[in-house]
Design a protein around this nucleic acid. Structure first.
Lengths: 392, 392
DNA sequence: CTGAAAGCGCTTACAG
DNA sequence: CTGAAAGCGCTTACAG
């Protein structure tokens, strides 16, 4: 069943049928009615291969997503798809592995599919730097910045990772924490985590603390498994940490379990902060204090930026979208005595999240003990931890 | 840059270039070398629209995924993609909303893209029943059964939901539970949850208990949010439940938080079981006892089945893949006194998961109290629960 | 082993 | 407002 059949059945020519199908103006109502009726009756669907072969260029918007299981991206993508469809644009989603080169993939896609534009969820600026010159359509880096990149056809919409990380550290400081560890990311591999790390480092430095990468930092990928293992390593090495900043929520959620398995409680013995604000961070016990990236706004501005470039806007944008520190239940305020190493007691703080935190703080089901004793036990329980994990 | 340019540049004809590109046998080594060299130099990529337009049929395998954020599907999909690429088959992934009709979508896709075959992650048999007759290529329903469907070109690979649900209930029974509630799914909408519900119902009946749908069942969609809310409704209505079976892990994880917010502990006051065995169920506190669907095997058998049908196998299969009950930390054994309504005390059970459960059991940080008192408090804390959620 | 030619299903100037 | 014709980039019998 092709367009020729429709022409025959409707009594019109092939050209007229095509014009009706594409909503062109110069068609009589009579012809339009008749053709549409036949199309409806036989359930005709145009062959998009033939269509795209002719239309060369005026096609879809490609959305590259790095990491199919990244919950943050899932949120943003959902919104992007809705916005694109509202704008009557067709979206074509391409999922990539976390370590694939999305720009090479985009170049390939461009030659084969001729998209109008591209959106990159989670792209890596390093790849863009070396290869983006070969893509000729407008693109926007979503969730990551194109700041150092001088391509006329590349914009970016992201959260200010440096600022957000700084705010996390400031918050921890304001709650009395001085021994702050960091877990997650990798300075070399991921620019996003590099920036978060940088922000945290700067904030510490502003308080006269130099981050000790050997002792108080532990890199890992963005998954619960790696977050778990990295946290164990970090705490074993630096048992005197009172707070840990995980560079992503998935890492934080894995880390939370690790802490529990080491016989410590959050936030009683250790405070924990994540980054992203994914849905499940709100259901963990305790609820995770984290940076919420504004996925709605990120999606909206990304799509608007791309659409504007179709409409003739030639200046690329580098937009930072506001973020928010969600103060939930995984951080507690430290009193001066706590800092000196005495028993972690429920905090008498007056804000809601810490009131809850206090309840959760004693949740390991054991009497208060000194921080030092807790750490000793943590070490002893390590074998047990691994055994448990093996069973799963 | 098209195939004609390559012909010109290599000094061979258009036909020879095409033959080289498609790996046809009748080409001289010399021609092959030369053409490949030119292709390499200029970075030529064939236009797939033109390609598919000609090749009509011998193209990709379409993978329809219902619910882009379904973690179970993400696991299976990852494996399917790997297997397909090993088999040198091209996969085209199409993400659909949970409530979209995947069969209509497949019919459309078929007319436009002419796939060799189709894989459906999370398809609904009801849609297949009415419309699958219009698809002519082989397909396999993954994660759901095609048992009642008489299509020659439709196979299925799934977990035996009925059996698995039955095993959950049996397990709960063996741990002393008699008042068992169920949360999640919807008999009318989702066949998968319908089967799980059915299995649970049967198992209860075998023990002389008729499931009271009005009191002890609460439907909801497969998300943490809905699981949270449904659990609150269920527990408010039936405070005497000692165990709840959530028909999906996402539901269970949301429910777990709800229970905590009601001032109850898992498994101290209430035991909880999930279904699916998603990754994060292993990091919750307590770790979730759940049915693990064997995603690796499901993926493997699905792909093998589809490939076999290309190879001439004409009999559709209806395969059930083994599942596993993961006994973790969210269920505790009830002593006879517990059943009579006395204080929930840590269980002296001898198996590992319950030993851990015992520790977790008293994690709400309060002295043992009678089950009844706990319930009263649960009711009182409802407003507070809602307030907290509003803040998030 | 290779080349010349037909045709996949569609869109879009070009005439009328 | 409509029809006839060219052509998008490719593959594959068909001859040789």
């Amino acid at each position: 069943m092709d367009i020729r059949d429709i022409a025959r059945l409707s009594g019109y020519s092939l050209g007229t049928v095509s014009r009706v199908l594409n909503g062109h103006p110069n068609v009589s109502d009579k012809a339009r009615m008749r053709v549409l009726k036949v199309v409806e009756e036989v359930g005709y669907e145009p062959n998009s291969n033939a269509r795209f072969l002719k239309m060369q260029g005026r096609t879809a918007i490609a959305v590259f997503v790095k990491g199919a299981r990244n919950l943050l991206f899932a949120d943003i993508l959902e919104r992007i798809q809705a916005l694109l469809s509202e704008a009557d644009e067709q979206a074509d989603v391409v999922y990539l592995d976390e370590d694939e080169n999305e720009v090479l993939s985009a170049i390939h896609y461009q030659q084969v599919r001729h998209p109008k534009g591209m959106l990159f969820l989670g792209g890596d600026p390093a790849f863009f730097k070396t290869s983006y010159g070969r893509v000729s359509v407008p693109g926007v880096l979503v969730t990551n910045t194109a700041a150092g990149l001088a391509f006329k056809n590349l914009s970016s919409v992201s959260t200010n990772d440096v600022e957000a990380a700084r705010e996390v550290v400031e918050y921890l400081f304001s709650r009395g924490h001085r021994r702050i560890g960091i877990v997650g990311g990798n300075r070399a591999l991921s620019q996003v985590s590099g920036r978060r790390l940088h922000g945290a480092e700067e904030a510490l430095r502003a308080h006269g603390i130099e981050l000790d990468y050997e002792r108080d930092y532990e890199p890992c990928h963005f998954s619960m498994e790696e977050g778990y293992d990295a946290m164990v390593r970090l705490i074993m090495r630096s048992p005197d940490l009172t707070a840990v900043f995980a560079l992503g929520d998935a890492i934080a959620l894995g880390a939370m379990r690790a802490v529990f398995d080491m016989g410590l409680s959050i936030p009683g013995d250790l405070s924990l902060v994540g980054f992203d604000g994914v849905n499940s961070s709100q259901f963990s016990i305790p609820r995770l204090t984290t940076i919420r990236q504004d996925t709605r706004l990120i999606a909206t501005r990304s799509v608007e930026t791309l659409l504007a470039s179709f409409a003739g806007e030639t200046k690329p944008v580098r937009e930072m979208v506001p973020f928010q520190l969600l103060k939930r239940e995984s951080v507690r305020a430290l009193s001066p005595e706590d800092r000196a190493g005495s028993a972690p007691v429920a905090d008498g703080g007056d804000d809601a999240s810490n009131a809850v935190a206090a309840t959760v703080g004693v949740s390991a089901g054991r009497a208060p003990e000194t921080a030092k004793a807790g750490r000793t036990r943590a070490r002893a329980s390590r074998v047990q931890v691994n055994e448990r994990r093996g069973v799963i």
